[in-house]
C-alpha cells in the first residue's frame, strides 16, 4: 500500500507538467482513475493503472480534481484522473413542465446543471433508475431526452 496525503500540484501547471514530461520518458506516470461520482471523497483507496494500491486522503478544505498530482519522486508520479461524468440531458415541453421537472429533480436530490433550456442530470448510477422516477412526466410528453 502506498499512503499519500494531500495534493502536490496540478498536472497542467507548467513546472509540474515539465516534471511529469520527464517522468513520462521513463514510463514513470501512473494514473489513478477515480469514478466521477466518487470524486467528492476526501479519503479513499484505489489501485492505479499499474497496480499500485493507493490509500489517499486530502485535507477537508481540499477538493480532488482531474489531473491532481498525488505523489511524485524521481522515478514516478501518481496522477488522479476522473472518469467521464455520465449525464442525462432532459428538455421540458413548456414552462409548466419545467416547473414540474425542477421540482422532481430537487426533491430527488439529483445533481444537476443547466445548459440553456436543458437540464443536465449528473448520474451516480444507471439512467433507468433515474428515468423510472419521472416516468409519468415522460409518458405524458412533458419531458423528453434532449
Amino acid at each position: 500500500m502506498l499512503r499519500v496525503h494531500g495534493i502536490l500540484g496540478r498536472a497542467d501547471d507548467p513546472e509540474v507538467h515539465a516534471a511529469l514530461h520527464r517522468l513520462e520518458h521513463r514510463d514513470g506516470i501512473e494514473y489513478l482513475f477515480v469514478p466521477a461520482h466518487e470524486a467528492g471523497r476526501k479519503r479513499f483507496r484505489l489501485t492505479t493503472d499499474r497496480g499500485t494500491d493507493c490509500a489517499v486522503s486530502i485535507d477537508r478544505d481540499q477538493a480532488l480534481f482531474d489531473g491532481a498530482v498525488l505523489a511524485m519522486d524521481d522515478s514516478r508520479a501518481i496522477v488522479a484522473r476522473f472518469g467521464e461524468q455520465a449525464v442525462w440531458r432532459l428538455i421540458p415541453r413548456d414552462t409548466e413542465a419545467a416547473l414540474q421537472l425542477g421540482w422532481h429533480a430537487g426533491n430527488l436530490h439529483w445533481r444537476g446543471r443547466f445548459d440553456g433550456e436543458v437540464l443536465e442530470v449528473l448520474l451516480d448510477g444507471d439512467v433507468d433508475t433515474y428515468r423510472a422516477r419521472i416516468a409519468n412526466l415522460i409518458d405524458q410528453g412533458l419531458v423528453r431526452d434532449a
Partner: peptide, 15 residues
C-alpha cells in the same frame, strides 16, 4: 519530494 514522503503534518481524522 518522494512518494513515501507525501504525508506531512497532521492527517485529518477519518469520518
Amino acid at each position: 519530494m518522494t512518494v513515501q514522503e507525501t504525508i506531512s503534518g497532521t492527517v485529518p481524522a477519518a469520518r
